[in-house]
Design a protein around this nucleic acid. Structure first.
Lengths: 244, 244
DNA sequence: CGTTAGTTTGATGGTCCTCAAGCACTGTGG
DNA sequence: CCACAGTGCTTGAGGACCATCAAACTAACG
């Protein structure tokens, strides 16, 4: 039997609030309706007004928008512990698609469920809204990266952000992590071509900064990578406000 | 004496909900504390944890992030009727700066004020959260634009989005609008250099699509501009959900 | 063992940046 | 009234960065 303590969401939130027994119980109830999805088939399609959100417990998902001309822009990746479609369920407007990158496990949560949970454990609401605001901050940082960083720095920054996020749920460290993304995924998130992604990766590897190969990211020199990316994790760890 | 009906925020929200007398009263009380700011001097600075938000009633503001290397990325512009720092006041994390582009008028609102208003008029809360989610959708669309559109389409898309937003508060139409932005502002929002912005504008002007000159945007051919930008306003007017 | 998805490398060229310089307009102080 | 400084716009030249096209290679899989 698996404990609620194994939930990546719990691990993530625990980094910011010490969760009470009551709060853990509410979270456990949120995880009731487990579902699986297979890699590659969209869970939610652009335009569709979906009424359910998910808490991702295993696997990776990407949320993206397709342009009329067929090009794709990935807005964000979700990793275990992340919400999928939280905003769209609260505000009934899903304007992008979700695609599982590998086979995934997720807990389905309806708007009611969430609002219930919020009223039973208000501090939990704050914690989850904090997580949501962090997601938004990541989108903004992503925007800045695409607008104002060159390809090398963009890649470095992206890999470092993933590192920080994965570390929070014990799925990585400063020396590296598992990563099921293809170079096409990287291209679509960074606004580059797949060919150029390949060259950038080679470049970073040759400079002995980081190696991305066979679904693994190995960070050779964390410090110099941070420097190249001008990575400032301030937008990720706003620990202060929630501790009280 | 000015009526609450003149407030751009009221005009904006009215496009989506028929506001009751009670709701108008609550909105009026939100507009009590009027303040002015002069052009060019930051209202809120990156990193500062500000406790107040504003409802912009006159003028334009831009929210941006400065990179360590000095380059700037504008995340969004605020026009009358828009909130400034709503998220940061609710979640106490302001990670970018706000700069008035011209002298502005705004109403200061504290977190308490807003929460009070929400409890007095729950439907208003929905409407305001809808506006917030629209802002987020705009950031996502912005991301897609910078990542996957060329300079011409990016510019066209941006000018069309502004057109739609301004029309909502009666400050523009499909034939054009006033716009106090400089070409440097355009460069910083579109992730281009100011020099290239100038060339793009010339190009659009020569093709008789749109003219941006002396603080005025004149749209010559709305249809062909929409086509060039592949502009689909779906992400802006999610009228449906709130009408009930 | 052929097929498919993903990676790698080369060649070529377009988009957009940078540097540089000149122009137009506005406000300021002598 | 005029010099001037400041801000914003405009245009040219040259080159960096990254896209596109093309092709070969590897690994996984039925």
């Amino acid at each position: 039997m698996t404990s609620i303590h194994d939930s990546p969401l719990v691990r993530k939130l625990s980094a910011f609030v010490a969760l009470s027994e009551n709060e853990l119980g509410v979270l456990e109830r949120l995880h009731q309706r487990r579902r699986s999805f297979v890699a590659g088939r969209d869970m939610v399609h652009q335009g569709q007004s979906e009424q359910t959100a998910y808490i991702l417990s295993q696997g990776w998902v990407c949320s993206y928008k397709i342009q009329p001309d067929g090009t794709r822009q990935v807005v964000d990746f979700q990793i275990p512990g992340d919400f999928l479609g939280l905003r769209s369920v609260l505000l009934r407007t899903s304007d992008h698609s979700f695609e599982p990158i590998v086979d995934i496990e997720a807990a389905e949560v309806s708007a009611e469920h969430i609002l219930d949970a919020f009223s039973q454990a208000p501090r939990l609401a704050t914690a989850i809204l904090w997580a949501a605001s962090r997601d938004e901050a990541m989108v903004v940082e992503h925007l800045v990266g695409i607008g104002r960083r060159n390809a090398d720095a963009r890649m470095a920054h992206f890999l470092l952000e993933l590192c920080a996020r994965l570390s929070l749920v014990n799925m990585g460290s400063r020396s590296g992590y598992d990563c099921p993304l293809t170079q096409y995924h990287l291209a679509d998130v960074l606004g580059l071509s797949a060919v150029h992604v390949n060259r950038v990766l080679r470049h970073l590897r040759e400079r002995r900064l980081v190696t991305f190969r066979s679904s693994q990211v190995v960070i050779h020199d964390y410090g110099r990578l941070v420097e190249l990316a001008e990575f400032d994790p301030a937008y990720l760890d706003q620990a202060g406000p929630l501790l009280k």
